[in-house]
Design a protein around this nucleic acid. Structure first.
Length: 121
DNA sequence: GTTCTGACTAGGA
DNA sequence: CTCCTAGCCAGAA
């Protein structure tokens, strides 16, 4: 064969870990107006307890891919938007996107998961 | 192979 | 409610 085994089309030059792709596949299923925690996403991706990986995949993943999925719908288990100096303000952008979807924040900046949490179905 | 790191988490103070 | 800690996993060096 002249093509790589499996015949899968590359689409991207950079190589993305298989587990990251699994993460993206789950994030893509989160409905508008709902949010999921990193741990929940990892679990549904078949990577139980790899919550940190979900965060890594969304943060360090290729923008071409991440920008095509509702990355803003993933927050931490406490219902808060995770902060990091390295985010360089994208945390604020995340909140804007979520509010635009109808998600409300308490004065303390918390999303009530009982109301906006995705049931995974 | 080892070591370090992090958009995490549950639990305790 | 906030702050701190130990445990966790996979990727990167």
């Amino acid at each position: 064969m002249s093509r790589s085994a499996g015949g899968r089309r590359p689409r991207l030059d950079i190589e993305v870990p298989e587990s990251w792709l699994a993460i993206y596949a789950v994030v893509r299923r989160i409905p508008k107006g709902k949010v999921a925690s990193y741990g929940q996403v990892a679990l549904l991706a078949g990577l139980p307890r790899a919550a940190r990986l979900a965060g890594t995949a969304l943060f360090h993943g290729p923008a071409e891919l991440v920008s095509k999925i509702p990355w803003q719908r993933v927050v931490n288990a406490a219902g808060r938007i995770s902060y990091s100096e390295a985010r360089n303000g994208s945390d604020h952008r995340q909140r804007e996107l979520l509010e635009k979807e109808g998600i409300e924040f308490t004065p303390a900046g918390v999303i009530r998961m009982s109301k906006y949490g995705w049931d995974g179905k």
